[in-house]
């Protein structure tokens, strides 16, 4: 319960923090930290336009996407305290329920009969397929360290090691998880959410035909997804009494948001054909991590 509430709370400012970091780096005045929330609120008040090509799939997809991310958030524990949902193998459920949301986003994009949206759908399907092994490798490696197969047991037993190897491994995991979060949320260097050319978009182009409440739901779900990955990373570092771990939680979330903001300020988007290579190398790094944990722990 605690982690779910904290994720929702963190999602309120996560996206705004990225935007703020970017505007500071660019030397602009920029919008306030709560501007993304205001945008969503405005969208929730609007009416909806559906394309005549679409079917019920297009109308139900945003709901399933939001539901899938909510369910995934509910799986995340808070240190030793379990999330709303916890059982052996819950991280498999976490990954698969997120895939359910993606599945419906992809087919909804194909439902609009638009060439651009199909392009985004194809890329989303491919990149998330490539990124999935990296996530499972990370989970496999921390389940190896802790000897457990559910989020809460894994994270509860993770912090009992404090030698240099394990601390190093934890930091590598955090970085890889952050990169996975950036891939899954379609941020730089994979995808540029601020680009104005549909040909180079991934996530943004898939939702070209969504409007009103649906668009607001998709955007707010995206913010939640960010905070969810941030919470996952935070779990690697949680320690000490409750007040301190809540402090660490928000600190990690802020660091993640600022890291993404800085990356986006100083990096250009990859060319599309470099993306698979990039994601493969992330998975390869995760594989190296797993093997070194097998060897040394």
């Amino acid at each position: 319960m605690l982690s779910f509430a904290l994720i929702i709370l963190a999602s309120l400012f996560f996206s705004g923090l990225i935007v703020r970091t970017k505007s500071i780096c660019a030397g602009r005045k920029g919008p306030g930290i709560f501007q993304p929330l205001k945008d969503v609120r405005r969208l929730f008040k609007k009416g909806t336009v559906y394309s005549t090509s679409t079917t019920f799939v297009f109308r139900i997809a945003p709901l399933i996407y939001a539901a899938s991310v909510l369910m995934a958030c509910a799986c995340i524990p808070f240190g030793g305290k379990p999330g709303l949902i916890h059982f052996e193998g819950d991280f498999v459920f976490f990954a698969y329920v997120l895939s359910l949301g993606k599945f419906f986003c992809i087919i909804a994009a194909l439902d609009a009969a638009s060439s651009f949206e199909g392009m985004g759908a194809s890329r989303e399907a491919l990149y998330s397929m490539l990124a999935e092994p990296a996530f499972f490798l990370i989970m496999g490696s921390i389940s190896l360290i802790s000897g457990h197969t559910s989020f809460v047991d894994i994270f509860a037993n993770l912090n009992s090691y404090d030698d240099a190897f394990h601390i190093g491994a934890t930091i590598v995991m955090a970085v890889i998880l952050l990169i996975i979060a950036m891939v899954e949320s379609s941020r730089l260097p994979i995808d540029d959410p601020k680009t104005h050319l549909e040909l180079t978009m991934i996530h943004e182009v898939m939702i070209l035909d969504n409007s009103g409440f649906d668009l607001g739901l998709i955007l707010s779900t995206g913010y939640m997804k960010f905070a969810m990955y941030g919470a996952l990373i935070a779990n690697l570092f949680l320690a000490g009494p409750l007040a301190m771990s809540i402090g660490i939680f928000f600190l990690v979330q802020a660091v993640c948001a600022i890291a993404i903001g800085i990356t986006e300020s100083f990096m250009a988007r990859f060319r599309m054909n470099h993306n698979p290579e990039f994601i493969f190398s992330v998975a390869a790094a995760a594989l190296v991590l797993v093997f070194s944990i097998m060897q040394f722990s």
């Binding site: 009416g47 909806t48 336009v49 559906y50 359910l100 609009a112 009103g212 409440f213 649906d214």
Partner: peptide
């Protein structure tokens, strides 16, 4: 629960978009 949450969100959308305009048009 996945099914229930989806149904719940559908209900929320029904309530939130009540009285709002709902148009159809060609794909953008």
């Amino acid at each position: 629960i996945v099914i229930a949450v989806t149904a719940l969100l559908w209900l929320v959308r029904r309530l939130a978009t009540r009285g709002k305009s709902l148009e159809t048009g060609p794909t953008w």
